[in-house]
Simulated scan of single mutants.
Amino acid sequence: MNDNIMTTDIHEMISHWLKTPKNGYLGSDYGNDLAIFKQALTSNDKNAIQEIISNMQTDIQSLQGCEISIKNPGLGDSITICVDGNCRQHTLNYMD
């Protein structure tokens, strides 16, 4: 993780990314596809989850080179994302 950026900043960037629909900005494919994300978690599809992480790293360049894991502890839309061992709970929906 970039030493100049705080862990809270990173997780705020992730939270923003999670809340932004794919192609949510004109001329950019920034954001995530909630349906695909939820399906990957529900089916525990490790390849699909890795692709989501890769897309997140592409969209949030501060995450490039970071170790990222995503876990769904069976709490519905609540997920845990860890970046270089720093974990935070996030909500999977476009509106909070």
Score class of each variant (00 low, 15 high):
20 T>F: 03
29 D>M: 03
7 T>P: 05
56 M>D: 06
53 I>R: 10
44 N>R: 04
78 S>R: 15
92 L>T: 00
29 D>R: 10
73 P>V: 05
5 I>R: 14
76 G>Y: 14
82 C>Y: 10
74 G>T: 01
94 Y>H: 11
89 Q>W: 12
37 F>G: 10
4 N>A: 10
33 D>P: 10
92 L>H: 07
70 I>H: 02
16 H>P: 00
19 K>G: 10
78 S>I: 15
32 N>V: 14
13 M>E: 05
35 A>M: 04
96 D>G: 15
13 M>A: 10
58 T>D: 10
12 E>S: 13
80 T>W: 13
30 Y>P: 02
38 K>Y: 11
37 F>Q: 07
43 S>Y: 02
85 G>T: 06
20 T>H: 10
68 I>V: 03
59 D>N: 13
12 E>W: 05
14 I>M: 06
40 A>W: 10
22 K>W: 06
38 K>H: 07
27 G>V: 08
23 N>T: 04
93 N>E: 12
65 G>M: 05
73 P>H: 07
62 S>F: 03
65 G>I: 01
48 A>P: 04
32 N>H: 06
77 D>H: 15
62 S>C: 00
41 L>M: 09
84 D>P: 08
92 L>P: 03
7 T>A: 08
22 K>S: 05
88 R>A: 12
3 D>H: 14
64 Q>H: 14
33 D>A: 03
57 Q>P: 05
79 I>C: 08
9 D>C: 05
51 E>M: 15
2 N>T: 00
93 N>C: 12
95 M>E: 13
77 D>M: 11
9 D>A: 13
31 G>C: 05
64 Q>K: 15
68 I>T: 00
87 C>Q: 06
8 T>P: 10
47 N>A: 02
15 S>V: 03
47 N>L: 01
37 F>S: 08
43 S>M: 03
31 G>R: 03
16 H>R: 14
15 S>I: 01
60 I>M: 06
10 I>P: 06
92 L>V: 00
35 A>S: 02
35 A>C: 00
3 D>A: 14
26 L>M: 11
36 I>T: 13
22 K>V: 10
77 D>T: 12
79 I>Y: 12
21 P>N: 07
68 I>N: 01
31 G>F: 00
67 E>W: 10
